[in-house]
């Protein structure tokens, strides 16, 4: 499927202030349906603040923010229903089984029992994890947990999924399996919003933005940014901006 032109995330002049501190200083960007968008920045650049706003957990001080067609001021619950979230550290209950975790998340998003049952079967087949459906998450290797965590994050078919350093710490082959799952989700029309410290993860994104001190300092495809900053890789681009 070709990338579509419909905007799933629209941010215009987003400002977030904490007292005198300007955490987000006039951010403006759009992310399209099915796009893999990398949201980069140093520690303290303002990424977490912006993500909390995009996911309906915090109000902007000013500016327009629209996610999945909903306004983050007035339709926060609608925003939350239409997004998924996965972080590297957390996501699954270690003392529940694979199946119980899926069932739990499906229930939270208000999916019917029948739908959950059917979709769980499909999912387990696709992941080739039917055999381990009744194993505790704590007994599984990290790479498997990550795949399940991602599958759970998109189980309710959100318009956008937020991934926080999704592939940190896993072996390189598992990491690539994981990126293929991300490509597949994007191909199916889910917008993937990735935050990461690791610039080699940024190279997988369709477009990336780089934040520094509350502002977006660069935005474009990895190829464009490397050309613009005369750099061989995104690590060099980042260092030129944030150092």
């Amino acid at each position: 499927m070709q990338k579509q032109t419909e905007n799933i995330i629209e941010v215009k002049d987003l400002v977030k202030r904490f007292g005198a501190f300007l955490a987000n200083d006039n951010l403006t960007f759009e992310v399209k349906r099915g796009e893999i968008f990398g949201f980069l920045g140093a520690n303290g650049a303002g990424k977490t603040t912006a993500i909390k706003i995009l996911s309906g957990l915090s109000y902007p001080t000013s500016g327009l923010v629209n996610v999945a067609g909903f306004d983050v001021y007035k339709q926060r619950n609608k925003v939350k229903e239409n997004i998924g979230y996965m972080s590297q550290k957390f996501s699954l209950y270690e003392d529940l089984t694979v199946k119980e975790n899926i069932r739990f998340y499906g229930g939270i998003y208000g999916l019917s029992n029948k739908y959950i049952k059917q979709k769980t079967e499909d999912l387990l087949n696709r992941l080739k994890m039917t055999q381990i459906q009744n194993s505790l998450i704590s007994s599984l290797p990290l790479g498997w947990k990550q795949k399940i965590a991602f599958s759970v994050a998109i189980f309710h078919n959100p318009k956008v999924v937020f991934l926080d350093e999704p592939t940190g710490g896993v072996d390189p082959i598992t990491r690539r399996d994981f990126w293929e799952m991300i490509y597949e989700a994007a191909d199916a029309g889910i917008t993937v919003f990735v935050t990461t410290h690791y610039m080699d993860e940024a190279e997988y994104c369709d477009r990336v933005s780089i934040m520094d001190q509350g502002k977006i300092k660069a935005l474009g495809t990895p190829t464009e940014l490397k050309k613009l900053f005369k750099a061989d890789n995104m690590d060099e681009v980042f260092l030129k901006i944030a150092r």
Binding site: G41, A42, F238, A242, R243
Partner: peptide, 10 residues
């Protein structure tokens, strides 16, 4: 360097 941004890492 785990969890540290690219500048601090460098």
């Amino acid at each position: 360097t785990t969890g540290v941004d690219a500048v601090s890492r460098k």
